[in-house]
Amino acid sequence: MIEVRGLSYRYPGGERALEGVSFAVRKGEAFAVVGPNGSGKTTLLLSLMGLLKFRGEIRIFGHQLNGKGLRELRRSIGFVFQDPDTQLFMPTVGEDVAFGPQQFGYSGDEAKRMVKEALRAVRMEGYEGRFTHRLSYGEKKKIALATALVLSPEILIFDEPTSNLDPASRREFLDLIGGLNCTRIFATHDMDMVRRIADRVLVLFEGRKAAECDVESLFKSPENLRKWRLA
């Protein structure tokens, strides 16, 4: 479903963020990207959305990710940013969730129906009229997920989905992510989440691929986990 070959990215200052990363994600799997701070996880996810100018090749559904057709591809890929205040930029929940459908030309009634469904999926029915700035952090996270779910994407990408959540909100959010049927890719430090949800893992270390394996193999080697600063 997703094939990445030789992905490299340098920040505008010339500092290396990613170097020659290659991996593949299969349809329907939960794929975790793990690594210590500054290992390039967020850069990798932003590249998958075509939001950064990278070197290398990314193919999604067999189509090369470049300027042409990028917008249409984004209809099938949802992205949940780490900070919900980045993701939720409209004043009310309803307007925010409806932003995606509006951009893709859905009519007002259709968009309203989609918003309702997306809010139901994250158990936030009736929040349409609420002001975004009045929500708690956990609520904002759920609404951010709804903004990504509203277009029924085939792939969902999460950047640090459980960061800053209290234990109850974290559990609820993990249940939501775990209950989704689409392909899920998430960058995280939360190794418990990896153990619970992920099928396979990509380990990034200093901008390079350190390993790509299934979850069991990752946890079999505590030495490697320590070496990659994951334990």
């Binding site: 917008r71 890929i77 992205f79």
Partner: peptide
Amino acid sequence: EVYRAMTARGY
């Protein structure tokens, strides 16, 4: 960041 979030959602 917000511009990226908007672009990711089809803007």
